[in-house]
Design a protein around this nucleic acid. Structure first.
Lengths: 335, 335
DNA sequence: TTGTATGCGTTATCAG
DNA sequence: CTGATAACGCATACAA
């Protein structure tokens, strides 16, 4: 059995309240008899006392804990951002619990129902659910909330990248490479980022084929097979997993197509495939989340504005070479 | 304010215990008057009752929650395994909270101190701390515990891959490729997997250079620069992040060296570098964890054996080509 | 079948 | 400066 305040009180011939005050350590601990304070501290130490945070949380209705509910922790992008959010929250003396909905609406609902009962002080969520209503009816009003990556109409407190700008720079890069007709690999259309990216790309290129599926590598692989006999100038993927899947299938291709991809592809500089990515500023997104959350946790009533961050286009070497090549040939059109 | 049992009791003119029994739904709910039961259920539904799990947990000393404390959630390997563990636990009606020590001993200590007080039923940990003592003195005796990936002497309940076997097959593959002298990139030697992998490789090859650092991509990059003027037949990395870092730096290399790597490198088939990886069976590791944990959670006292799983060597195309080439040239030695 | 009473470990409000 | 005492919301032994 773990020792409780009562055990320490008994051991020091004091009362539970005295022990509690000493261990709380705030102002009240300062104006106490030096003697009892050291006695209590010594006993607490000796018995190896650890506060029962469940009891404390029940009493104070605070837990110094924030939950991060992500849609797929198997995606390195979310792992990276989770790691950064945890670090930042730690500086502010909050601990983070991470939950994973695995892109499953039902599982997300379950966590949303469960988490508030677990006494979290705030929630950061990468929602699979798309409507404000679906989300809010599961959460108690007043729970500090930040929506990450997938903004939802009507929820002001959100942090995400600028999809318009992201698509614009990606498309611009592809156009410079002479791309006119594209094949698209899209994640589920019910997810706002995938849908928006898809729409925006479609508005600038002729989309001659499109494959939709779960945002997993396998979807990319399947798409590539489907696209085998299609003459697209480029394949555009709405996230990194899909991109990885497509590129993974390119091993046999004698003349690999150009790839445009939202998010980052690791090691792309070495890949013998022209790739351009629209990469998000993950550290800024993470810090943005925390900054949106903190005032809410402190109970300040602020009018939070959605935070929308720019992305940047990053070409790999092969893509750059492609651009050079085009520039040369257009400089000498007569040849 | 969220409605409590008392609110429902008042609304239905019953008592807290009646409501509690109805909502518990077990055997006692069966032998209750149909009338009160439906009344209570209706009211609970109408008021949008959600149990306060903090209070329940304080009372019952169970939370149906397991914590997974990983050493670096930014590493996709851990993201993948976390995702699988969460799924498996969910089938057994446990929810998972994920914490991240970021390879920081002090942060790990903090979580280990904190988590038991938060009322978790069990713990799966990828430890940064290396001694049984350091771990156990922070955890209450009797807390269901599984050590993942980095076994600790004296702790029987662990799940990991067979490092001897992993190193053996990796070395065998490298030997077949004619490797004799290697340069090594190692994670921190205080971490058992890195140390062991390093030792085992060193026992089979002549190690002519070695670079140690945090298991991050940057360490791999730094190592590569250090190795620039060293004539090794291969570079061996003790995990995937280090491998990624090295490979990432290879962009300028006219004649890239052979890479041996523990864990998986994504998209390696397309990389113009001979790579062989010793990959672990992540799904089996995840399921193994859960299977080790469940009996402990059920309070069965079993003698758990460490679970040690085999790995398999996976060469990429370039590496296979290297083997073919050698075979041909040795088949015609006189040429 | 239902209600009353007690306690889980803390913090907070009172008196003294 | 310190000690009773009452919550927090729930589950359960016991009483009716």
């Amino acid at each position: 059995m773990r020792p409780t305040l009562l055990d320490i009180a008994r051991a020091t011939h004091t009362s539970v309240s005295t022990v509690s005050r000493v261990l709380a350590g705030g102002v009240s601990a300062a104006r106490m008899s030096h003697d009892t304070r050291v006695r209590v501290l010594e006993a607490a130490n000796r018995l190896g006392y650890r506060p029962n945070l469940v009891a404390r949380s029940l009493r104070t209705r605070r837990s110094q804990t924030v939950a991060l509910l992500v849609s797929d922790i198997a995606n390195p992008w979310f792992g990276q951002i989770a790691s950064l959010i945890e670090q930042s929250l730690h500086h502010h003396r909050y601990s983070l619990v991470l939950c994973n909905s695995g892109e499953d609406e039902e599982l997300e609902r379950e966590y949303l129902r469960l988490l508030p009962g677990k006494g979290i002080d705030g929630l950061i969520v990468v929602p699979v659910l798309h409507s404000r209503k679906a989300l809010m009816e599961l959460l108690p009003a007043g729970l500090p909330l930040v929506v990450l990556d997938r903004p939802i109409p009507g929820i002001a407190c959100s942090v995400s990248s600028d999809q318009e700008q992201a698509a614009a720079i990606l498309c611009a890069a592809l156009e410079r490479a002479g791309v006119k007709r594209v094949a698209m690999v899209c994640g589920p259309q019910r997810i706002v980022t995938h849908r928006r990216r898809c729409e925006l790309v479609a508005s600038r290129f002729e989309v001659i084929a499109c494959h939709e599926g779960p945002a997993q590598r396998d979807t990319g692989r399947r798409a590539y097979i489907k696209f085998l006999h299609i003459e697209a100038d480029a394949i555009v993927c709405t996230n990194n997993f899909l991109g990885q899947g497509v590129i993974d299938s390119l091993a046999d291709a004698e003349c690999p197509p150009t790839i445009g991809c939202f998010d980052e592809i690791a090691l792309m500089d070495l890949l013998p495939v022209p790739i351009v990515c629209s990469v998000q500023d993950v550290p800024l997104l993470a810090e943005g989340c925390v900054q949106q959350l903190l005032p809410q946790l402190r109970g300040e009533l602020t009018k939070p504005q959605p935070l929308v961050l720019p992305t940047r286009a990053v070409p790999n070497r092969r893509f750059q070479a492609l651009l050079m090549q085009r520039r040369e040939s257009s400089a000498a059109p007569g040849q």
